[in-house]
Write a protein that binds this DNA or RNA. Structure first.
Lengths: 330, 330
DNA sequence: ATTTTTATGTTAAACGATTGACATATTTCA
DNA sequence: TGAAATATGTCAATCGTTTAACATAAAAAT
């Protein structure tokens, strides 16, 4: 049904070899022949079968993206940016929503290998180092150390969280809590927590951490937040991400607390979505476009030269503070 | 580098043919042989090369998803659901963010063809019917008529918008406006607009439509909204989607309007994100999970039996009204 | 007029896996 | 014991494309 190279060659009145030469621009070709072949390709709406080409050793120009899920706006925006940048460079992306599921991530990796992807961008990290090490595939990791062989791209989580905490301190908060997604060890969110704790310690203040699990239902999350606001009555909350910050804001409003008078809140991520639809929220902005660019660039470099020594094993991109109403001095 | 079938066969001490037979469960095999081969596969971490298999005529089990972009929460959630359901059935997904760009969508389609995808789920509709018709590939469309040969899955946009408008009428609004993304013809959003207009007409009220283009900057959108709220002073706004509704709510708050006392607002889409972080917003909920299920099921049926006559050319899934604070009777 | 260069064709092998045809050996069952 | 069923192997073709090797012929350069 679908046109193959032999059909093109026949229509153009040349041999299959010549047709292939035209496509791959290989050897001596006359303009006339090229024109004939291109014309035939157009007429037949011919697309070379990438699978067959890749069997020959050519790159499939396909990469796998493994993330916890793209419904989360941060990963959605990051994935979209990555895909766009890949496309510009002639690459395609297979998406894998691994969630928090180790087994699923393992399955995805198998599937990607079977599909001969040229490389992987890993942003879901349920698996151990060893499993990624033995793949023999170019990999770059988003925000998590996988192995010495795998370059990591991330935002400056530590500095971001430091700025966030400072923002609340400067705004005059006396009782600053940290509220975040519960942290498996090694998670970059750890750095956000760490920076908060370090800064509090350096100010001789007590760290107060409340965590809500990613998998908790919203009601449970709200309950946790409610309890914190009611019992502990903090006047400032550093949140591990913007969505958590929104929950805090919502709960505060329900309880009749005034923001920023009674309570100041700052988030983390700064997606376009949040910046657009919640311009009032102070937050730490991750440079999503730059992150995507770095992930793609480093991966494609690895793909082009798999043997080259790693220039850098870690790329930490700067974040920026967006100071808005939720941290305004009352 | 990567293990191939020949390596497995050698390690297992059998012929390549036998190894292949084990994998494909073809012909007579002894338990002992099967065990040996499986063992060898495990040891070598062998994954059959899907590309080579597909060249043989086997399905690649790969489908293309073409959407305007997954950063939009609605498409993000829909894409995630689709991907999950595909994965369960052994299929993989290539994502294509076509935006509003005709040329890019065309390029994506070429690329998908070159990659021998088994089918396409099309949710970005920049191209004409003809282009989709001549692909000779199973396709299902989300929310837009492409051709008689292409089944459409969509929500009941008309009924949804009808319910939305009624909700405002019931809540006592006297001056109900429609605010939405500007509508190219044939867009399903048209039905939302249509339902609003029809209902207004049947009530002998005047339709008032304000449109903001998808591509408008946020500032421009806000300006449009501001103008409407200030000059026309509607007391109810039917929005074509939840994000637009949020902009209206924000602008209303900035202007000191009280919701729902001075102004009632209702949105459309009802993503988990919005329901979670904006529980106050009344909206029409599209059944994202069911839409994904239907898209996947119908596509896989077409893939399994490409020649079968279409059972249905259009599947319209019911939506539901979520009546919340923004449309409460004051 | 002769050598290069350019242009194209023929043929065949290769990529990795599948599969049919055929041969052979072992087991099982009448 | 002999036929049927079971188990495995060898060989070769096939999928669509690429590419090296070789041959040939016309055009261009010497």
């Amino acid at each position: 049904m679908k046109a193959k190279l032999a059909d093109v060659a026949k229509l153009a009145g040349v041999s299959v070899t010549t047709a292939s030469r035209v496509i791959n621009n290989h050897g001596y070709l006359s303009e006339a022949t090229k024109a004939k072949v291109f014309q035939a390709m157009k007429e037949l709406n011919y697309q070379p079968n990438s699978l067959a080409r890749s069997l020959q050793g050519k790159k499939l120009q396909l990469v796998g993206l493994i993330f916890p899920g793209i419904a989360n706006p941060f990963f959605g925006e990051l994935t979209e940016q990555i895909e766009t940048k890949l496309f510009t460079r002639g690459y395609k992306a297979i998406i894998c929503n691994a969630g928090r599921d180790k087994e699923k991530e393992r399955e995805y990796i198998k599937m990607l290998m079977a599909n001969q992807v040229d490389g992987i961008i890993a942003g879901a990290h349920n698996l151990g180092i060893e499993e990624y090490n033995k793949l023999g595939l170019p990999i770059v990791s988003f925000d998590r150390k996988l192995s010495d062989q795998v370059p990591i791209i991330s935002s400056d989580n530590y500095h971001g969280s430091q700025m966030a905490t400072e923002e609340l301190v400067k705004a005059g908060c006396q009782k600053i809590f940290f509220m975040g997604n519960s942290n498996q060890k090694g998670n970059p969110t750890d750095l956000r927590l760490q920076a908060y704790c370090d800064l509090m310690a350096s100010l001789k203040r007590e760290s107060q951490v409340r965590s809500i699990a990613f998998s908790d239902s919203v009601l449970l999350k709200q309950l946790t937040i409610h309890k914190m606001l009611e019992i502990d009555q903090p006047d400032g909350v550093v949140c591990s991400d913007d969505l958590t910050a929104l929950l805090v804001l919502n709960e505060a409003r329900n309880m009749g607390l005034k923001v920023p008078q009674d309570l100041k809140v700052i988030g983390f991520d700064g997606t376009t979505l949040i910046q657009t639809y919640h311009p009032e929220l102070s937050t730490i902005i991750q440079p999503i476009g730059d992150l995507a660019e770095a992930l793609v660039r480093v991966l494609l470099e690895r793909i082009a030269q798999p043997e080259a020594a790693l220039e850098e094993t870690s790329y930490i991109l700067p974040v920026s503070l967006k100071s808005s109403q939720t941290t305004q001095v009352a």
